[in-house]
Amino acid sequence: MEMLWKVMFPPPSSLLVSVMSVASLVGVAGFGLCEVLGIHLQYSKFWTLGAQNSIRRQPIKLSSRTGMLLLYTPAFLFGVASFLLFPDGDLRLLLVQLTVTLHFFKRDLEVLFVHKYSGGTVLDSVLAISLSYFVASSMTIYSQYLTQGSPEPQMDLKYPGILLFLVGIIGNFYHHLILASLRKDGKEGYKIPKGGLFGLVICPHYLFEILVFIGITFISQTLYALCFTIGTVCYLVGRSYVTRKWYLSKFEDFPSGVKALIPYVF
């Protein structure tokens, strides 16, 4: 624990940030556990799963593009608004605002101009994920704002964080381009992706997304950013695990050596 506080700002005095740190860790990690247990957030290739379990009402379905925009846009808009809400911050706060905003802006651009769609989304799942991202965006920036004037951590990780963020966002974008290229000429359906790190893991885009959030955590060095990133890692581990199972069930020729998330390991 002593080593942790050498690389982190002291725990915030704000009860709100403390509560949301725990809630984000438990809530987002809980999504990952649900994925492993077969309770999926209904988007992408799992968008129809679970709909048959609804007895009281039919789920409200959205187009993939509309649903995905709703996932990321509130978080992006808060990032933009934060420059007005928290002006004149230090370099670390500015970097956190820039990286958070850039991450969600990139995701919106991908939704509009990169991704190819063959399914849809379910409103309940969209709202859950959108709320999670909005809270993550707002609390990451707000908790950083609360550190203004505080002594810096003994170890400054913001520059390694910038490097990790850039590697993550570029790698994530590159593998999204590969996925989009599988559906040329308007063709729908799924294929086994090839190229980049797809020969080693089926979800390299998740691996690089994890690097994005680790990079933001290194830049921020706050408890909230750490908690959300740990939760996100747990969720993407679960999601990649069930994604690999899905490919194994759909494709008899799926390479057995291709792991879920971490090359040669998992």
Rank of each mutant, 00 (worst) to 15 (best):
M1S: 15
E2W: 00
M3W: 10
L4F: 15
W5D: 12
K6R: 12
V7T: 04
F9K: 02
P10H: 02
P10F: 00
P11T: 13
S13Y: 06
S14C: 02
L15F: 10
V17D: 04
S18K: 12
V19G: 08
L25E: 06
C34K: 10
V36H: 02
V36F: 09
L37G: 03
I39K: 12
I39H: 14
I39Q: 13
L41F: 06
Q42F: 05
Y43P: 00
S44H: 14
K45Y: 09
F46N: 14
G50E: 07
R56C: 14
R57G: 03
P59M: 10
I60L: 10
S63V: 00
S64M: 03
R65L: 09
T66Q: 05
T66I: 12
L70F: 11
L71F: 15
A75H: 02
F76M: 15
F76I: 09
G79S: 06
V80E: 04
A81Q: 12
L84I: 14
L85P: 01
L85M: 14
L85H: 07
L85A: 14
F86K: 09
D88R: 05
G89Q: 10
R92Q: 14
L93A: 10
L95H: 02
L95A: 10
L95T: 03
V96M: 12
L98F: 10
T99H: 13
T99G: 08
L102F: 15
F104G: 13
D108T: 11
L109Q: 11
E110V: 01
V114D: 09
H115F: 08
K116H: 08
Y117G: 00
G120I: 05
L123F: 14
L123A: 12
S125I: 08
S125P: 04
S125W: 05
S125Q: 10
V126W: 00
S132P: 05
S132V: 06
F134M: 09
F134G: 05
S138E: 08
S143I: 00
S143R: 01
S143E: 14
Y145R: 11
Q148F: 09
P151M: 06
P151C: 10
E152I: 09
P153A: 02
Q154C: 02
D156H: 11
P160I: 01
G161Q: 04
G161Y: 01
I162Q: 03
V167Q: 01
I169C: 08
I170N: 11
I178R: 13
S181A: 12
S181D: 13
R183P: 00
R183Q: 15
K184Q: 12
G186C: 04
E188I: 15
K191H: 13
K194N: 11
K194C: 07
F198L: 01
L200G: 00
L200R: 07
L200W: 12
L200Y: 15
V201N: 05
P204T: 03
H205W: 05
F208H: 07
E209I: 02
L211M: 13
L211N: 02
V212Q: 13
I214L: 13
I214V: 15
I214G: 02
G215C: 06
G215I: 07
S220F: 00
Q221Y: 10
Y224C: 06
C227S: 09
F228Q: 08
I230N: 03
I230G: 00
I230V: 15
G231M: 07
G231L: 04
L236R: 00
L236F: 10
S240K: 09
L248S: 03
S249G: 08
K250S: 09
F251R: 03
D253L: 03
D253I: 05
F254D: 02
F254R: 02
F254W: 05
S256A: 10
K259F: 01
F266G: 07
